[in-house]
Simulated scan of single mutants.
Amino acid sequence: MPSIPEGATPTLAELLQQRKPLRNINQENDDNLSSLDQAAVWITNRIGTMGFFLLILIWTVLWLGWNFLAPLPWRFDPATGFVLWLFISNVIQILLMPLIMVGQNVIGRHAELRAEHDLEINVRAEEEIAVMLVHLERQNLMMLAMIEKLDIKFNQIMPSQNIEN
Rank of each mutant, 00 (worst) to 15 (best):
E128W: 06
Q27S: 02
H110I: 09
S3I: 15
E28Y: 09
S89L: 12
P159G: 02
V123R: 13
P78G: 01
L33T: 04
F154L: 11
A39F: 09
R46L: 10
N32Q: 10
V41D: 00
A8T: 03
Q139C: 13
N90M: 15
G51D: 08
S3V: 15
L72M: 09
D151I: 00
W63H: 13
L136N: 11
M101C: 12
F82P: 01
P78F: 02
I56N: 12
D77C: 02
M1Y: 12
N29P: 04
A111C: 10
W59F: 07
N162G: 12
P159I: 05
P2M: 10
A115I: 11
A125D: 15
P5M: 02
I4M: 07
L99S: 02
D31K: 03
N105Y: 08
E116P: 09
E116M: 14
N140Y: 10
T44Q: 00
T9M: 06
F87K: 07
N140K: 11
Q104M: 11
M146P: 08
S89T: 15
Q156N: 05
D118K: 09
F154Q: 04
N105M: 06
N140C: 14
E148P: 00
E148G: 05
N45P: 04
Q93H: 12
L136R: 13
Q38F: 07
N140L: 15
G7R: 05
E127K: 08
K149R: 07
Q139Y: 13
N105F: 01
S34D: 05
E14N: 07
E126H: 08
L36M: 09
L64S: 04
F87V: 01
N140P: 11
I147M: 04
I43V: 02
M50V: 12
G81Y: 04
M143G: 08
L150N: 00
N162R: 11
N155Y: 04
L64V: 14
A130T: 12
R19H: 07
Q139F: 12
H117T: 13
P98T: 06
E120F: 06
P78L: 03
N67R: 03
M132Q: 06
L22V: 15
E128D: 11
L72W: 07
I129S: 09
E164N: 13
R138H: 14
T11G: 01
I56S: 07
M142R: 13
V83D: 03
P5S: 04
M1F: 10
